[in-house]
Design a protein around this nucleic acid. Structure first.
Length: 148
DNA sequence: GCCAACGTTGGC
DNA sequence: GCCAACGTTGGC
């Protein structure tokens, strides 16, 4: 089993919203590196859910991959913000997964906490200019943040 | 709203 | 294939 970190702007889609809905297709990823990570996701993998672009950026909960990668339907939808004119049903460019609510952290693990913890120095999310919305996380890093 | 650090696009 | 221009992300 692998572990991941996924970013979302709470104004767009928050962890609380995922809690209410139970499960949600993770669509709209339009970066090749992030897409390739999505394609490596397997059912049962655990996901750190990170809130970005907000008052207190950080990890607020854990989600679980409930469906492995499939063609992101928003790429074919001309009305979608994520429409990609260069994609077609025959030539899909983008993938999505489905995530499910797993658990809420008792206390958010803030960006400041991430930077302070020596065991987390190597996390991709902390690299300057890292803007990937999906990144792999080691089991050790995962456990530091979300407990055993 | 600013700006650094990217990724993408397209002319050549 | 190079690279300048442009767009986006995300912390502050």
């Amino acid at each position: 089993m692998r572990h991941w970190l996924m970013k979302s702007e709470p104004d767009e889609f928050s962890f609380e919203e995922l809690h209410r809905r139970g499960r949600e297709p993770w669509t709209g990823v339009r970066n090749y590196q992030a897409r390739n990570f999505l394609r490596q996701c397997e059912v049962g993998d655990l996901v750190l859910f990170y809130h970005s672009n907000c008052k207190e950026p950080g990890i607020v909960g854990v989600a679980k991959i409930s469906k492995a990668a499939y063609d992101d339907p928003t790429q074919f939808d001309a009305k979608s913000d994520y429409y990609d004119a260069k994609a077609s049903q025959e030539k899909s460019r983008w993938s999505c997964v489905e995530v499910s609510f797993h658990k809420t952290l008792k206390k958010p693990f803030t960006l400041e906490d991430l930077r302070t913890d020596k065991a987390l120095r190597t996390m991709l999310i902390l690299r300057p200019g890292n803007r990937l919305s999906v990144t792999p996380v080691s089991a050790q890093e995962f456990n530091v943040i979300a407990g055993a």
